[in-house]
Design a binder for these strands. Structure first.
Length: 1032
RNA sequence: GGGCGCUUAGCUCAGUUGGUUAGAGCGCCGCCUUUACACGGCGGAUGUCGCAGGUUCGAGUCCUGCAGCGCUCACCA
């Protein structure tokens, strides 16, 4: 189908507003929120896959009569988008800080506008039946209002707090990174065993470390209380080398004992641990946690650029230690090791290979760095516990912890279900091990945190409280933290507190900002983690918290939240699914969706994830260009299996010649296989083009002479061929109906008619079951079998001689086409909608009316009713009988094929009574399909030029198949047949002589084996008779 | 290291609670330009189901171990 046709169809859909959700209309609500794509780049095939499945669901349930809403939109993707814009500015030699915040945000906004438009046009091109009138962006006013309300509520309820914690710090770009921006890389390092002297001179303890430079910030040495040496060291101190710092020995279960002293031999740490752990709370997450348990001092010995510094929390640096100040992390490590060696305190060095987090932006090792951040207390039962309680009972592994179970019941408990079920475990273990969520980001692009802070002496701040009291609690919420250690204190104790404190004021709206700022409060410059706004997506898009404020959103929130299903990929379970569940339940008291469907990932032909930075992602518009949208969608749906990820071998299309070719592959320094940046035209090597990798990495820039090459993949031929087949078959069928004889008669349904209707009913049921199970490849399979195999190969071919005169058959044909278009529509909306106009004329005249199948007329296929088939339509007898017909036709065709007999050549079939009865019951179908001129009984004297085959244990003869029998070839064919059947018979005889089988297998199964054996034996003897008849 | 998957025809993938001759599409081979479709029709060939054990009358399917691949969480003792 040409591309222009897709455009025409889209125009008809738009004109009818068929996809606009109206909550006041009847119907069970069926809603889906699109996982909003990042505005960092255009969509690739992974998105096309995700959206094809959502559209399939939406269109299916719309046709089933549901009141559907598929809400589209995009995500501002804070870090990612800011980064791409900064990179682009860098090409012009500019930095973010060369602009004001407003100017910079304006530049990001421009980028966002461009890519949002691209993404929405891609969704349209893919035929997505979204309600585009309700398109949202996570920084829209409606979303901003929701973010503000959610933050304020959480802050007021004590679920947001300011914390001094370790973050992933990139010392090169000097910004915090989220966990998913940290890449683990294998690094060859060492274990250094450092001797720390006890302060009483009674000896040493030895610690093992891979980061000796952090010892400058050590504030304790840990030992496991079960360690036999622990008792003797109790209360003792270590004199930390270089710094001379006196640090305690603390006992903590966390410390791993060496295997030699009773440590768990299965714990790899036990093999290289000494049992003594250097504790550096400011530079290691686990040490930080340990430090909290033992109230240890926190000494940060680094500057934000990663160099050793005594100006960021290190106050006791002596002269010896100062020798290291100013050194980079790397240099400090060398010098410290050298110092220990020179002082005879280096016990041992062992090589060690381990993973170290690196910044994906600068590729330097990430530093756990102490800083003040805002956190959501997701460990609170109101969030974490609530999420766990929402899980479907049968999907919970083991039992939920008693404290989680004990909490109060709530709507949606036990109703969240994962498809495939195994992903529930992922969700569960994430929540069981969850840590508080750091939500502040040192960025400019995003929702700015609505907290204003004033730092001052406690008493001075207490004096402000009276003034602030003029702001009602619905508009402002207060929290106080002690500056020295970041610990939060109650507002009421401020008056009696001493020292510097931070008074944080969260405002419900900016209306009070000026007031607050006049008191000297400053707004936090940081923005919220992108997932904070994403977590509110199913609410913010429908007008929460104040739907009355947006007239066009009236009724949406109550009708479409909870939504029906969330469709996404598995890496999103923790990042997004979890947070939506926690927030929706906390703010609205119900689930954001009932089902979570996790689909596979589309990888490139080398098994690599499609990624923007690698440039190995394929633009769906390229595939639409090469194969058409329906072809792309059908193929994607057929790839939606739920066991493994899908590999998609990718080719290039030469822009000079239009030819498809396999590109030249190279291996990047990171070990990835990608299409070389510049490729030569296969027709004319002097002509060049740029690959997606070249464009994405900036290695090559497309020009008029050297254009960007489109991608394609032969995998989509499946869908293209299928759509083409349907197109031709429908046109052929319609032309036959149009040419029907005026005196066509109503006749009883023939076997093949009954069979075709039964197949339609069967396919309808299979498709519904597959969709209910979210097993989409079964949908494609059922459609392929119905349309290509059943309808085209068997039905159409069977009715060719009779269709123009049999009025009943004409109605069966019309009903079949009508039903097939409806069934296929959710997968291939364009071709079905295009063909729909012709089908409508059949509906109008009742020319498709068949008892047992409901196909009410409709203006558009997109809003036509899903077929309803009565149970009587599933004619089991017709199915079984036609299967025999098919087997008979196959058997005759096979011998025709083997003998290479022209299809034009008609033969006479000589057969037993039962076979002749079968042929006659099929009303001419066997004759049509197998090229049979006439059917006769087997004469007592076998005609000389007959070819023999076996069928259901009897011998069939084909007369006139060949001019002369080739005895040698015939004997070879028959003996091959006998050998094959003998082999099968042997297996069955073996089975039936096995006493265990006879004693334990199901009786029906044994009976079946006996029947099959008898048939095989009958076939063998029939073949042997034929063999004998050939003489010598 | 923990968890979850995966390993089936040359390629990309199915294979429901163990059951008889393990499937599909592409590719390959032969025939057919038969009046819907060559993006087609008819026929055909191709599998020690990753490896090694075990349970069972019977294992691609269940169990154990091993190898390889992928994802994910953790990991700077």
């Amino acid at each position: 189908m040409p591309l222009e046709a897709e455009g025409l169809v889209r125009e008809r859909w738009n004109a009818s507003r068929a996809f606009h959700a109206d909550p006041s209309q009847p119907g069970e609500p069926y809603s889906i929120f699109i996982p909003p794509p990042n505005v960092t780049a255009a969509l690739h095939l992974g998105h096309a896959f995700n959206n094809a499945l959502q559209d399939l669901l939406t269109r299916h349930y719309r046709m089933k009569g549901a009141n559907t809403l598929w809400l589209p939109g995009t995500d501002h993707a804070g870090i990612a988008t800011q980064t791409v814009v900064e990179k682009r500015l860098l090409l012009q030699g500019k930095r973010r800080t060369d602009f004001t915040r407003e100017q910079f945000v304006g530049k990001v906004q421009e980028w966002k506008d461009e890519y949002e438009a691209t993404i929405l046009s891609q969704l349209t091109a893919m035929g997505c039946s979204c309600d585009f009138e309700r398109t949202r962006f996570t920084m829209d006013e409606t979303c901003a209002v929701a973010v503000r309300a959610a933050f304020f509520t959480l802050f007021r309820d004590g679920l947001v707090y300011r914390g001094k914690r370790l973050v992933n710090w990139d010392p090169a770009t000097q910004t915090a990174l989220s966990d998913d921006e940290v890449e683990m890389e294998e690094v060859d390092g060492s274990f250094w065993y450092l001797k720390y002297p006890l302060s009483d001179g009674s000896g040493f303890v030895t610690v093992a470390t891979t980061r000796p430079e952090t010892m400058l910030g050590d504030t304790a040495v840990g030992v496991n209380p079960k360690d036999p040496r622990a008792a003797g060291l109790r209360g003792k101190f270590v004199r930390l080398p270089i710094t001379d710092r006196l640090i305690p020995i603390v006992e903590d279960e966390y410390v791993v004992m060496p295997a030699s002293l009773g440590g768990d031999p299965l714990d790899p740490k036990a093999s290289f641990a000494t049992g003594f752990l250097k504790v550096t709370p400011a530079h290691d997450q686990n040490d930080w946690d340990l430090g909290l348990r033992h109230s240890l001092a926190v000494i940060n010995v680094m500057a934000p650029d990663g160099s050793i510094s005594d100006r960021h929390g290190w106050n006791d640096a002596n002269e010896a230690a100062r020798a290291f100040v100013g050194l980079s992390r790397e240099d400090a490590r060398k010098k410290i090791v050298a110092w220990f060696k020179a002082n005879n305190l280096l016990e041992e060095v062992r090589p060690y290979r381990h993973s170290v987090g690196h910044s994906y932006r600068s590729h330097v090792p990430v530093e756990p760095y102490l800083s003040d951040q805002w956190y959501v207390r997701v460990t609170d039962d109101r969030l974490r516990g609530s999420a766990l309680r929402s899980m479907a009972k049968d999907q919970v592994e083991g039992e939920l912890a008693p404290d989680v179970r004990a909490a109060g019941a709530m709507a949606g408990d036990g109703e969240l279900r994962f498809f495939p079920a195994r992903y529930a475990k992922n969700f569960q273990s994430w929540h069981e091990n969850i840590r508080d969520w750091c939500i502040s980001r040192q960025l400019w692009w995003g929702h700015q945190i609505p907290v204003w802070t004033k730092r001052a002496d406690a008493r001075a701040l207490a004096g402000l409280l009276g003034t602030l009291a003029s702001l009602p609690s619905s508009r402002a919420a207060l929290r106080v933290a002690r500056v020295s250690d970041g610990v939060e204190v109650a507002v009421s104790t401020l008056a009696s507190a001493v020292g510097e404190h931070d008074l944080h004021v969260a405002l419900a709206s900016d209306d009070d900002a000026a007031t607050i700022e006049s008191f000297g409060f400053k707004r936090d410059p940081d923005v919220l983690d992108t997932w904070f706004s994403s977590a509110l997506w199913p609410m913010s898009t429908l007008g929460w918290p104040d739907p009355a404020k947006w007239p066009e959103m009236a009724g949406l929130l109550d009708r479409y939240n909870p939504s029906s299903v969330l469709c996404t990929a598995r890496e999103i379970i923790t990042l997004w699914v979890s947070r939506m569940v926690m927030f929706n339940r906390y703010f609205l008291g119900r689930l954001p969706f009932k089902h979570v469907f996790i689909h596979a990932m589309i990888q490139d032909g080398h098994g690599q994830k499609m990624s923007k930075s690698l440039g190995n992602g394929v633009d769906p518009r390229d595939i639409i260009h090469s194969h058409g949208c329906d072809a792309m969608r059908f193929t994607l749906v057929s790839m939606a299996t739920n066991t493994q990820d899908v590999r998609l071998p990718v080719d290039l299309v030469d822009p000079h010649s239009g030819e498809t070719f396999g590109p030249k592959w190279i291996t990047t320094s990171g070990g990835y296989s990608v299409a070389d940046a510049i490729q030569s035209s296969p027709k004319d090597p002097s002509k060049k083009m740029v690959s997606g990798f070249g464009a994405a990495t900036g290695v090559a820039t497309p020009t008029a002479d050297m254009p960007l090459a489109r991608n394609t993949s032969a995998r989509f031929d499946l869908g293209r061929n299928f759509a083409n087949k349907l197109w031709n078959a429908t046109r052929f069928a319609l032309s036959n109906l149009a040419a029907a004889a005026a005196d066509s008669k109503e006749e009883p349904l023939t076997l093949v008619d009954r069979w075709m209707l039964a197949r339609v009913a069967h396919a309808t049921q299979s498709i519904e079951a597959a969709i209910a199970d979210y097993e989409f490849y079964r949908v494609a399979e059922a459609l392929y079998d119905l349309i290509w195999r059943d309808f085209c190969d068997w039905y159409l071919e069977s009715v060719k001689p009779t269709i123009r005169t049999n009025a009943t058959q004409q109605r069966v044909l019309a009903a079949s086409i009508d039903a097939m278009l409806r069934l296929l529509h959710p997968v291939c909306p364009f071709v079905t909608e295009t063909l729909w106009a012709s089908v409508q004329s059949l509906e109008a005249g009742g020319k498709n009316s068949i008892a047992g199948i409901l196909l009410p007329p409709a203006r558009l296929c997109a809003i036509a009713a899903w077929p309803t088939c009565a149970a009587t339509l599933r004619d089991a007898e017709a199915l079984a009988q036609f299967e025999r017909v098919q087997a008979l036709v196959d058997a005759i065709r096979r011998v025709r094929g083997e003998r290479q007999v022209s299809p034009k050549r008609k033969v006479v079939l000589l057969a037993s009574d039962s076979v002749r009865a079968l042929v006659s019951s099929a009303s001419g179908v066997v004759e049509t399909l197998a090229g049979i001129q006439s059917v006769q009984s087997v004469p007592t004297i076998r005609p000389s030029a007959c070819v023999a085959i076996t069928f259901e244990g009897s011998e069939l003869l084909l007369d006139g198949l060949v001019d002369a029998i080739d005895n040698v070839a015939e004997k070879a064919r028959l003996s091959a047949l006998i050998t094959e059947r003998e082999k099968q018979a042997l297996g069955m005889r073996l089975k039936l002589s096995n006493e265990g089988y006879l004693a334990k297998a199901k009786p029906e199964l044994i009976e079946e084996t006996r029947r099959k054996l008898a048939e095989a034996e009958a076939d063998i003897s029939a073949a042997e008779r034929a063999f004998a008849a050939l003489g010598t």
